[in-house]
């Protein structure tokens, strides 16, 4: 049994405020793991620590066997961990196609190349096209990304994140602000793209969480109070008290 992502004693303080207060978590290789918790529980901060946006105050983070604690974001990404953002974070003036293409370039080994033409890179073209079809934006590939509708921008956000083919995917509220039918599409998309990979997803929509996740962790005030299968989490009284409250069905 190997863990794709291991957090041990993770802590993060901003000034006097301790946001993450000792998180231990092992995400198994190939599982879909949801992290839920009330607003302000520190879910986004946890993502920012894992993905290298800022370093933790204490504790270690391992990606498979590699210690990635305090590494830079791009180094962590190169090791095979990618993430999406809660607030859409795309390249607004680039075309939809270029957005996804930029996501592929480093992972396919083209790095900072200034001696080869981007249109001639067969591997990049193929991967970009397949991802654009996957996320349903092939028809809109020529548009500047900033002109896309909100749901399309969310899909593009996902597309950029998965373009590099990373093995561990962290999604931050991928369905936030979507209509009911859009959520259904997004869930099936997430299911497809995470096939054979490790997925960590922060989500408020409990339908999505219980539908998608193999296991669920509950984060409350910077601590994980429970981890288990959807059935176990649903049954846990501690979780119901702390978080699900009357919303539990």
């Amino acid at each position: 049994m190997s863990s794709a992502l291991t957090l041990a004693g993770l802590r993060k303080s901003f000034g006097a405020a301790e946001i993450i207060r000792g998180v231990d978590l092992a995400v198994e290789d190939g599982e879909r793991h949801a992290i839920i918790g009330p607003n302000g529980a520190g879910k986004s901060t946890l993502y920012n620590l894992i993905s290298g946006r800022f370093p933790p105050s204490a504790g270690r983070i391992h990606l498979y066997d590699t210690d990635i604690t305090g590494k830079k974001a791009f180094d962590i990404n190169r090791l095979g961990l990618t993430r999406s953002f809660q607030v859409t974070n795309i390249f607004a003036r680039l075309s939809v196609l270029d957005n996804v293409r930029c996501g592929c370039l480093y992972a396919l080994g083209h790095r900072y190349a200034w001696w080869k033409l981007v249109g001639r890179l067969q591997d990049v073209n193929e991967q970009t096209a397949s991802i654009l079809r996957d996320i349903g934006l092939w028809e809109k590939r020529e548009l500047p990304a900033g002109l896309l509708s909100y749901a399309d921008q969310r899909a593009l956000e996902l597309g950029i994140a998965i373009a590099g083919g990373a093995n561990v995917i962290l999604l931050d509220e991928p369905t936030a602000g979507m209509s009911h039918s859009e959520v259904e599409q997004a869930v099936s998309l997430i299911r497809r793209i995470s096939e054979g990979k490790t997925l960590v997803i922060v989500e408020h929509d409990m339908g999505v969480v219980f539908d998608l996740a193999d296991r669920i962790s509950v984060l409350v005030y910077g601590e994980i109070i429970a981890t288990g299968t959807p059935g176990e989490i649903r049954a846990s009284t501690a979780v119901q008290e702390a978080y699900l409250g009357t919303g539990a069905s």
Partner: peptide, 16 residues
């Protein structure tokens, strides 16, 4: 161009 549009995001697709 991507750095021009969103320097923070490129860090999460492998680029410094």
């Amino acid at each position: 161009n991507a750095v021009r549009d969103n320097p923070e995001r490129v860090e999460f697709i492998g680029y410094s």
